[in-house]
Amino acid sequence: MSRLWVRLACALGLLALAMIFPLVARLSGQTAIWFVFIGMPALALASLLYGIVAWRAGGFHLRREHPVAPGHQGRGR
């Protein structure tokens, strides 16, 4: 399921990036509108979506060592 969300985030990111090329080729009101009202929301949504997927997969969780019980010397010591 998470692969689907990653694919969707990547597709939205690609859509956002696609708005840059007409903008650079010919800066006009129309290309600026595409950039601001299609590209920016698509990029924001892609980042949010990927962030949620990564968070749910534990990407932002701090990995803690299991505390060693007092008196326990650990394996192999």
Binding site: S2, R3, L4, V6, R7, A9, C10, A11, G13, L14, L17
Partner: peptide
Amino acid sequence: LGRGLLRGRL
């Protein structure tokens, strides 16, 4: 992002 779109993971 194209790679991510094709493979579904990065």
